[in-house]
């Protein structure tokens, strides 16, 4: 039935057109722009150049990227240390408690993030002296991203093979041994997806560094913001985005690669 197939294509056509026009083309245009020449303020001259990428190798950009990377690593590590056990523990709770905490963890996402951050600012200002410091940025970032880590680990841990764990313990494996051989490999996938969900936003949540760092701490994302909103250098902003995008892709790729490695460990035993 040819006409039926065609009418089905009509149904997906709006999505095809919209995705092409407003997702694919803007991204490709930005990529194209990163190789163009900036003339003055907003203006762009369409002559090909590598200058924007050459600009990024300058120490000022390299050090910002390095600092942003370091902050993202710190935030991710703290979130793993706090969130990994929380996810595992949550999966072990009885059903009704599990559901309660799951709902409790997702609920804050429905409240405006800036409003929640405003409250943190006030708390830090009133009860501590660390507002507008590196620590303040890290703490707020950890707070904002922790639920993602807990959620990722939790959903992997609910599928954990409890009988294998009990068998291992019964056969005399120590708690540490059972954790390394069974729990860790089986929850590696959740842990790694938690890492991507915390690491990448840690370089991009520009309002946290803006509001809590007092403008002293610049994330990779802030570089893009500054080029767009202050200097109006569109090609350079596009080039920074391309680099950030590649970095994001690399993180996802590494996490995907690590997962089978963690899994294989278990079978090698």
């Amino acid at each position: 039935m040819k006409s039926k197939t065609r009418s089905d294509f009509k149904k997906v056509l709006p999505l095809y057109v919209f995705s092409a026009l407003f997702v694919l083309i803007p991204m490709l245009y930005a990529l194209f722009l990163s190789f163009m020449t900036r003339t003055n303020t907003w203006a762009v001259d369409y002559t090909f150049t590598f200058d924007n990428y050459r600009e990024l190798v300058k120490p000022i950009y390299l050090s910002t990227f390095a600092d942003s990377f370091k902050l993202a690593v710190t935030v991710t590590l703290v979130d793993i240390i706090i969130g990994y056990p929380a996810g595992l523990f949550m999966a072990r709770l009885p059903d009704h408690q599990r559901n309660f905490f799951f709902a409790a963890l997702t609920f804050p996402f429905w409240i405006n993030s800036i409003v929640r951050i405003a409250s943190i600012i006030v708390l830090l200002r009133t009860y501590t002296t660390i507002l507008y410091s590196y620590e303040a940025v890290v703490i707020t970032m950890v707070y904002a991203l922790l639920p993602f880590m807990i959620y990722s680990v939790y959903s992997a841990a609910t599928k954990l093979d409890q009988s294998a764990l009990e068998a291992a313990r019964m056969l005399g494996a120590s708690k540490g041994r059972a954790f390394l051989d069974i729990t860790l490999p089986q929850t590696a996938k959740g842990l790694l997806s938690g890492v991507t969900l915390t690491f990448i936003p840690s370089m991009c949540l520009i309002y946290i560094s803006d509001l809590l760092g007092g403008g002293k701490f610049i994330l990779a994302g802030n570089l893009i913001e500054n080029q767009l909103m202050k200097t109006h250098n569109l090609p350079l902003a596009a080039a920074i985005s391309v680099v950030l995008m590649l970095l994001t892709g690399a993180v996802i790729l590494i996490c995907n690669r690590l997962e089978p490695v963690a899994r294989r460990r278990r079978h090698a035993q």
């Binding site: 997702v23 694919l24 083309i25 803007p26 991204m27 245009y29 930005a30 722009l33 990448i200 936003p201 370089m203 991009c204 520009i206 994302g221 893009i224 913001e225 767009l228 569109l234 902003a237 596009a238 985005s241 950030l244 995008m245 994001t248």
Partner: peptide
């Protein structure tokens, strides 16, 4: 793509486009 890539990159692409 819009729910996978960082928002800042999308925002930049929309602004220039």
């Amino acid at each position: 793509i819009p729910i996978m890539v960082p928002e800042i990159i999308l925002g930049m692409a929309f602004l220039v486009f």
